Amino acid sequence: MTVIFILGGARSGKSRRAQALCEALSLKRIYIATGQAFDVEMEDRIKRHQQDRDESWTTVEAPLDLVKAVETHAEPDNVVLIDCLTLWLSNLMHRERDIVLETANLIEALSLASGNIILVSNEVGLGLVPETPLGRAFRDEQGRLNQKIAAMADKVEFIAAGLPLSLKG
């Protein structure tokens, strides 16, 4: 079992890199999607991601219950791609869920998983300080979540301009 964490900015090539790593393995491919289409622009983004994957992928929608999806699908014969933690965190915050508890549960599920898992997340702390309290709270929670995932992952890569930089492993 290997946990790989792919981190980067918007449009950096994170998802493309994660998908390529999954497709290099001769395992059943599970795509755990955390995004939800609340508007036309997001519908288009989701469709583009779906079009990038061929029929070898099974898609599981898990906008909130990521832990259950990991527990169900992270098996020895599978490679699981979670795309992405940023949207999952946003979903949790908008529903006022306990972020500390949800994060701890996810870390535990990842630690106990028996399959290969690749997680994608945005690095949101490199830009401007958000203007709103919610924006700042989100940035801070995302930073904490990323640190915890990076600490437990076997390998961590930062993607910039489509190029991977190995941070760990």
Score class of each variant (00 low, 15 high):
90 S>L: 12
30 I>V: 15
13 G>H: 11
149 I>V: 15
58 T>M: 10
154 D>R: 07
155 K>A: 04
148 K>H: 09
118 I>H: 02
42 M>R: 14
64 L>V: 08
127 G>W: 07
21 L>I: 12
89 L>S: 05
145 L>V: 15
153 A>L: 08
116 N>V: 08
11 R>M: 04
99 I>G: 11
86 T>W: 02
107 I>Q: 13
26 S>H: 00
71 E>P: 00
82 I>N: 04
129 V>P: 11
5 F>R: 03
51 Q>E: 14
164 P>A: 06
122 N>C: 09
116 N>I: 04
160 A>F: 09
169 G>E: 02
158 F>D: 05
49 H>I: 01
86 T>L: 05
150 A>R: 13
161 A>L: 10
126 L>N: 12
150 A>V: 08
106 L>Q: 07
33 A>S: 11
153 A>T: 09
102 E>H: 12
49 H>V: 01
28 K>S: 14
79 V>R: 00
89 L>R: 06
147 Q>T: 14
40 V>S: 13
161 A>G: 10
158 F>N: 06
4 I>V: 15
152 M>A: 10
6 I>Y: 01
22 C>Q: 01
157 E>A: 05
157 E>D: 08
78 N>V: 00
1 M>Y: 08
53 R>Y: 01
32 I>M: 03
143 G>L: 11
37 A>N: 12
152 M>E: 10
149 I>C: 08
95 R>I: 03
1 M>V: 03
28 K>C: 03
61 E>R: 07
116 N>A: 12
3 V>E: 07
136 R>W: 04
81 L>K: 00
159 I>S: 04
74 A>E: 03
95 R>H: 14
97 R>T: 06
147 Q>A: 13
75 E>K: 14
108 E>A: 15
58 T>D: 06
46 I>D: 07
67 V>E: 14
148 K>T: 05
113 A>W: 04
100 V>L: 13
110 L>M: 13
142 Q>D: 05
3 V>H: 11
84 C>L: 04
57 W>Y: 15
7 L>V: 11
145 L>H: 05
161 A>R: 04
38 F>N: 11
40 V>H: 07
43 E>T: 07
88 W>I: 09
165 L>R: 06
9 G>Y: 11
16 R>G: 10
28 K>P: 01
28 K>H: 10
26 S>L: 00
7 L>E: 09
40 V>L: 13
14 K>P: 01
24 A>H: 00
28 K>D: 03
108 E>H: 13
42 M>V: 06
136 R>M: 10
101 L>D: 14
158 F>R: 08
152 M>V: 14
127 G>R: 12
20 A>Y: 00
126 L>Q: 13
149 I>F: 03
109 A>M: 15
128 L>S: 06
104 A>Y: 02
17 R>A: 03
90 S>R: 06
15 S>L: 02
33 A>L: 02
37 A>T: 05
31 Y>Q: 10
167 L>C: 06
135 G>I: 01
46 I>E: 09
94 H>D: 11
104 A>T: 06
161 A>N: 08
32 I>E: 02
88 W>E: 12
111 S>G: 15
33 A>F: 00
40 V>W: 10
42 M>L: 07
115 G>N: 09
107 I>N: 08
166 S>M: 06
128 L>C: 11
51 Q>L: 13
160 A>C: 14
136 R>K: 14
150 A>Y: 07
109 A>D: 12
133 P>K: 13
125 G>Y: 10
130 P>T: 12
